[in-house]
Structures are given as structure tokens and as C-alpha cells.
Amino acid sequence: MRWLRWVAALPALAPAAILIGILVALVGATSFTNFGWGFFGFHWDPPTDQWGIMVFLIGSFLTAVPALVFSMLIGIGIAVASATYLPGYLTRILDPFVDLLAGIPSVVYGIWAFVIVAPVFGSVLEPWLVMHVAFIPGFGPPTRTDGLGVLISIFILTLMALPITTLLIRDALRSVPRDLWESGLALGATRWEVVRRVAIPYGRRGIFSAAFLGFGRAFGETVAVAMVLGAATNLPKNVYDTGNTVAAQMFELLDSAIGGTGSPQILAALAEMALVLLGISLVVNVLGRRLIASLYTEQVQGL
């Protein structure tokens, strides 16, 4: 009856099979001979057969990295407040709001950002920034009046990465034994000193994993970015300018190509972009996951 056990074990391969299926399909859909290393060039102009994705790749990093930095800083702050400074009953009221951020679908974020937030950015925040902090490189004029562009994308991506970073950091801080907190305090350290010198070093693996997985989330986000970044094919001139990311560019290109026949050139270009995106997100996810000891982290969406 040994074979029965093997048959019973087969469904376990479902996720691996899907993952391998994706890789096979993508590699099958592409052939690097089409574009060669020119694929990593700066010019994207399909009608003249130029398929450089560098602008989008830079756009992805330009939006995801600041979003990650913000969501890590805010996430550490929230996690520390919830683990040390706030009384238990307040934590139980406030923590679910962060979980809720993870539950909002990205298209809802997108339409909210486009219709409600962008006008505020365009008419209030960005003119203010130009008035007061124009001396910082990238923050000088000109602005756009509609508020779409790099800045609002960073804002939305920060919100979308925030639940992942916050929850993983919170887990990391909660994994610090109570005795260790108390030992720090018993040595005459303030709560903040215990956080900085004991708890954060103790939970550093979890905090690094938060950074990797949060980056993965921000880097791969598609629809919300497609709605607010402005879909440009040139590099943004400043933080108020439009640009595009690999994921959003793929989405817009496919969406517009889908009605037609989908030329083999476009399909191959898309497959190569997908491979680049998949490669980067696999690397950060493997790194992030390896740092977490537990089987799966807390059951929250998107984690």
C-alpha cells in the first residue's frame, strides 16, 4: 500500500507546481534572443521596436524604496508603541486598524487615491513643498496640478506595505522574553533604552524579514500604482512628476494589448518583464522568509 501514500501526498505539490508552471510559461513565452541586453536599455518605444525597461525598473525602485523606508519607520514606531508604551486595552482597540489596512483591495486604494487624495496632493501639499523645501534635490518645481506622480505613489505604497512591516516587527518585539525586558528596566534603563538596546537587537531577524517582505509588497504592487503614477515612459524629473513601474507598465500594456491580437513582440517583452519582476520578488521573499523561524507568520492578508 506504499503507492497509496505517494498518491495521497501528490496534492502537496500544488503550490510548487503552480510556481514551476509560472516559470515554465514565462520562459516559454520569452526568448532573450529577441532583445538581448538591450532589454535593460532606457528607451521604450514599441512602434520603433525599442524595448528598454530601465525606466520602469528605476521607477519601481524609486517608489518602492522610499515607501519601504517610511513604512519601516512608522511600523517600528507603531510596533514599539503597541508593545511597550500603550496599555493593553488601547492596543486591542488600535491594532485591528493596521490589520484592516491589509484588507483593503488595491483597486479601492487606487480609486480613493485618484479621486480623493490626488487633488489634495496637487493643490495643497505639492505647492507647499515647492514653496518651502525646493532646496532639496528633486523637490523643486515644476509641479503638476492633478497631484498624480511619484509622491502619491510613495504615499499609497507606504500604506500598503505598512501592515506587513508593522505586524512582523510587532511579532519580533513580542518574541522578546518578558524577563529580558524586565532585566533592562531593572538595570535602570528607560523603556526606550530597553527597546533600542535590547528588544530591537534581539528581534533583528524579524525586523529584517519585515523589510524584505514589505519591499516585496511595494515592488510588486500593480493596480493602485497604475492608477496614480501617471503611466509615463520617461524618467520622472522630480518627485511630483509621473513615471511608471515594471508591474504597472505590464498591466497597462497587457490591458491595452488584450483587445487586439497581442503581437509576439509584446508578449515576449511582457514575459521578460515578468521574469525580471518575479526574479526580484523571489529573491526578497526567500531572504525574508528564511529569517522568520515560525512556520507561517500571523494569519493576516497578504503576508
Binding site: 524577563d179 524586565e182 533592562g184 531593572a186 538595570l187 535602570g188 538596546r197 535590547v198 537587537p201
Partner: peptide
Amino acid sequence: RRRIGMVFQRPTVFPM
């Protein structure tokens, strides 16, 4: 707590 120190049941060395 600087003047009155404390040692706990289990060793609580810090990760350093």
C-alpha cells in the same frame, strides 16, 4: 532601579 539592582530566575543575558 540604578541603586537597587535585580537578578531573575532564569539568566537573562542580552544578545551582545
